[in-house]
């Protein structure tokens, strides 16, 4: 019987953190209110006081708080990123989630007892990369980009001593995380540099009767007719013309949903399952955490099947109302 994976849930605010703990997350991941994390959105994330309160709340319930400092330290401002790592250590975070190798090096030497996870933004898709991060920085867990098939995930797990965390639910990033600068090509800001993808300041929604157009820095990303479900204004999920065909050239607005393959994820030995969505509301965190908690608790059972109520709950909060197994399933690729 494989060990049950940890359930890692997102929180962009203190109410969301409490909701995640209340509904059964084993760990909650959060970010500071600055450019050091990949969800650097206006009004989102935690002040020091909120984080202190959040960590106390989680620890009181026997859960962990992981702090994402997973953008790349920008030249000339490296101190901001280092100070964020220092603060994470001071306020008692259980681990930091890092991508920048310069910052990993700093954390390893300055705070050796603070657990280090390799962020999905670190783009480590193979065991050689992960083992290097383990050997050089004592990384104890790596979050895999959403580009590998199940057998590929299993192959990584078999060849590394590092715990492997994979995404289980949430809006789907179709590109290898950390290796995508589409956002800065259109707007000047990217996840790696500013912690934003298709930043709100560049987004305009134009409504014309029942039609809605999405523009990113004036570039038309998509238009939705009456009744068509909308997605985030991320440009990889727009509709474009390729050789005369207009379609979602890269990806539909869609969410990853692994309910149906949880037993397989358990069997191959993933250490943790992560939910995307620090930018979402406490209502989302509560719904998804509760649902995945129930599913994960049942997934070790030989008679596991996806309950319609779980599916309904996740469908409701999904981007674009479509769900996929993403790269875990070969046909998607």
């Amino acid at each position: 019987m494989p060990r049950k994976p940890q359930l890692i849930c997102p929180a962009g605010s203190l109410p969301a953190l409490k909701a995640a703990v209340d509904r059964g997350a084993d760990a909650v991941y959060v970010g500071f209110k600055n450019a050091t994390n990949a969800r650097n959105f206006a009004g989102l994330n935690f002040t020091d006081q909120q984080l202190t309160d959040g960590i106390a709340y989680a620890h009181r319930h026997g859960r962990e708080v992981l702090i994402a400092i997973n953008t790349y330290a920008q030249a000339g401002r490296v101190a901001e990123w280092r100070q964020s790592v220092d603060r994470a250590a001071e306020i008692g975070a259980d681990a930091v989630i890092l991508a920048d190798f310069g910052l990993l090096d700093y954390a390893f030497h300055t705070h050796p007892s603070l657990r280090r996870h390799l962020s999905v933004q670190g783009s480590a898709t193979n065991f050689a990369a992960i083992n290097m991060a383990h050997e050089c920085f004592g990384v104890s867990r790596a979050v895999l980009p959403r580009v590998l098939t199940l057998p590929q995930v299993e192959y990584v797990i078999k060849n590394t001593p590092v715990e492997i965390e994979v995404f289980g639910f949430g809006s789907l990033c179709v590109m290898a995380e950390g290796r995508c600068i589409l956002s800065s090509y259109a707007t000047g800001q990217s996840p790696n540099t500013h912690g934003v993808c298709s930043p709100a300041g560049s987004v305009r929604w134009e409504t014309d009767g029942a039609q809605m157009k999405t523009r990113l820095n004036d570039i038309l990303i998509d238009q939705f007719e009456d009744g068509e479900p909308a997605g985030y204004p991320t440009l990889c999920k727009g509709r474009f013309a390729v050789e005369g065909d207009t379609y979602y050239a890269l990806e539909e607005p869609t969410s990853l949903n692994t309910l149906s393959i949880l037993p397989e994820l358990l069997k191959i030995g993933v250490a943790a399952i992560k939910v995307e969505g620090r930018q979402r509301s406490p209502a989302y965190t509560a719904e998804v955490t509760g649902t995945l908690r129930a599913a994960l608790d049942a997934a070790g059972d030989a008679h596991y099947s996806v309950k319609p109520a779980w599916q309904d709950a996740l469908t409701k909060v999904s981007e674009g109302h479509q769900q996929t197994l993403g790269a875990y399933s070969r046909p998607w690729r």
Binding site: Y72, A73, V78, A99, D100, G102, D105, A128, N192
Partner: peptide, 29 residues
Amino acid sequence: DLGAVEIARKAGVSFVAGATLNIYNGPAL
């Protein structure tokens, strides 16, 4: 790719650090 860095350093060969290694600051370089 980081995996390529691991193979190069273990083989003891010098390498060019490509643009996708995400070197955004001096300490990383």
